[in-house]
């Protein structure tokens, strides 16, 4: 197993990590020669909590990358996202060039028990150097303990929609919707929201919240929304979707697909996406009766893809 790389664009990595840093303490980094995936999941209950995937293509993020492993040259590890972010911030402050990363075996001599307890048997070493005022070279090395994931690597499957969905591109102003919904989070413990989307007319996207004997609220998007149908169940990249939406070739697809969907989910799960939706340049919402997801492009270059996936809940009536 070998991992050795140099990061070209640390800013992009840092900024996109910041969008998801509040979601969970630990994230999984999955390195392949082609791309780096940063995955935030709850591995106990994968399908009951939101999943976040950030995908960086290797050639735009890294100067050089060497990944070797017995499992199709894929290395997955779990680490503390705050430590990684802090290191990236330190690197920025140092005004240095080139951040090198290497996977190292933790020195086990003498203190075997310490590290194997929490399974953090290896460490990711990040190092860079800079010159101080007296032209002396300073070398910085940060070691972040990591847990190499071997067995459950297969659990890390990018989520996809099990049935046909409605697709819509959300405008930048949509982030105000999250602010309007925010107040209901503290209003009651019964924090369930029903989302309705429809393809008819100018397109419709509305949120319904209610608490018995207290209130009933409908908040809907007023402006024009272009709502489309998905073409197939295969996961497709945001870039492909965008291309399809723009050429509006999807309209001519099969007839059995839906025109209207209704999804109930935890308000909390929906609201957690607000930072991502607010921070990304292009946001596309996929929604069907069972699940919904945001497919986002971090900036205009369209290199970094962020996927936020939530499963709905079944409401017993």
């Amino acid at each position: 197993m070998k991992l050795k790389l140099t990061i070209k664009d640390t800013e992009k990595l840092k900024d996109s990590l910041q969008l998801i840093s509040s979601a969970r303490k630990f994230v999984v980094l999955k390195f392949t020669p082609k791309e780096l995936c940063i995955i935030s999941i709850n591995d106990q209950v994968i399908n009951q909590e939101p999943q976040i995937w950030i995908k960086f293509p290797a050639d735009s993020l890294f100067e050089s990358i060497e990944v070797q492993s017995l499992r199709e040259n894929t290395i997955s590890m779990e680490l503390n996202i705050d430590l990684l972010l802090q290191t990236l911030k330190n690197f920025k402050k140092a005004n240095s060039e080139g951040l090198n990363i290497r996977l190292q075996r933790t020195d086990t001599s003498g203190q075997q028990g310490v590290n194997s307890k929490n399974g953090r048997t290896a460490s990711l070493a990040l190092f860079y150097s800079n010159m101080n005022i007296n032209s002396n070279t300073l070398n910085h090395t940060f070691r972040i303990p990591v847990k190499i994931l071997r067995e459950n690597q297969n659990l890390l499957q990018e989520p996809y929609h099990s049935q046909n969905s409605l697709i819509m591109r959300l405008p930048r102003e949509f982030v105000t919707m999250f602010k309007r919904l925010e107040k209901f989070k503290k209003a009651s413990g019964n924090d369930i929201v029903t989302i309705r989307a429809s393809r008819t007319g100018n397109g419709f996207l509305g949120f319904i919240l209610q608490e018995e004997n207290k209130f009933r609220v409908t908040i809907s998007w007023n402006n024009r929304l272009e709502v489309h149908k998905s073409t197939n169940n295969e996961p497709e990249s945001v870039r492909e979707t965008l291309k399809n939406i723009n050429s509006s070739q999807m309209e001519s697809s099969e007839e059995e697909s839906v025109d209207e969907v209704q999804l109930t989910l935890k308000l909390n799960h929906w609201q957690q996406a607000s930072k991502i939706v607010g921070g990304c340049e292009i946001v596309i919402l996929y929604i069907n009766d069972n699940e919904c997801s945001f497919h986002c492009l971090f900036d205009d270059t369209g290199e970094v893809e962020i996927l936020y996936f939530v499963n709905g809940i079944r409401v017993i009536t």
Binding site: T176, R216, V217, S220, N222, N223
Partner: peptide
Amino acid sequence: YPLVIEFEDLYISEKLEFY
């Protein structure tokens, strides 16, 4: 009947029914 308060702007309509 509930007290209905509605907010409407270019982007969002919010209809609140308070018992």
